[in-house]
Amino acid sequence: MGATFMLGELVGGLRRNLSMAVSVVLVTMISMYLLGLGLLAQRQVDTMKDYWYDRVQVSIFLCVEGSQYAACAGKATTTVQREQLRAQLEQMKPPIKDIFYESQADAFKRFREQFKNSPLADQATERAFADSYRVSLTEAGKYEVVVSTFQGAPGVGRVQDQKQLLDRFFAFMSVVSWGAIALSALMVLCAILLMATTIRQTAFSRRRETGIMRLVGASNGTIQLPFVMETLVSSLLGASLAMGLLWATVRYGVGGYLSKALVDTAFIGVGDVLAVAPWVVGGVTGVAVVTSWFTLRRYLRV
């Protein structure tokens, strides 16, 4: 079949069935947008993991006068104990990378700075904070060595691993992204059913045409190709629109707003949208071709 003839039939077919084509475009767009969001959320988690695991610290809180930590028994850490701990930490390089001492006053100041937009900043008192050693590690996974060494050591109130806090947050992000992917799976199901219905209706409304094609000896491929092409074109258009929306979301939502609101967090960029694009486009192509093939096998027999 000539390419020009083919193209003419394709455009004519889409025009005759415009409302159905538009609905396929929209449903595909929404399902692919959700899928893209889910994939991007996972990339966001990965990006943040990379960013934060490099900065993950183990905090060794020391005792202060009237400390709430049970291990302190109400007594403050002595200067000797503090120096001993320091020396012990220095010996553990690596996996320890850097050691940084934060006094109670510094901790309080930092807290007030971080929560300056929150009523917590006014309610907190310096007494709620403790002196601490902040230890960064060469590998995020090595925190256990530090914890086991210093937990319960004289003068140590509590050892806290930030990674545990982060992991809880990442688990939450992961649930959100999988939720988006699950929703998108439902929407993909909608898209598949809609494509199948569209093809069935189109096949019915063109039964005269396809009947003639069969009679004059057109091959199965020739008869079915227009249906496959129409489905493919509408769904690819939907996927492109979804990619456009994702790009806009990342460019203006994440890049333009979130990254300014949360300066010290790493965010995904437009490059990540391009990275998920092949999955979205490939998925749509697969879904469209397989769906139309199955539907046509049922409704367009020779």
Binding site: M1, G2, T4, F5, R208, E209, G211, I212, M213, V216, G217, A218, S219, T222, I223
Partner: peptide, 24 residues
């Protein structure tokens, strides 16, 4: 008859050749 109402006489006849891949 089974003609395609949207196509002219020429197009109706040509259709039979187009769908089996005959050249223009």
């Amino acid at each position: 008859f089974r003609l395609l109402p949207g196509k002219t006489v020429f197009q109706n006849v040509a259709f039979a050749l187009q769908v089996i891949g005959k050249s223009r």
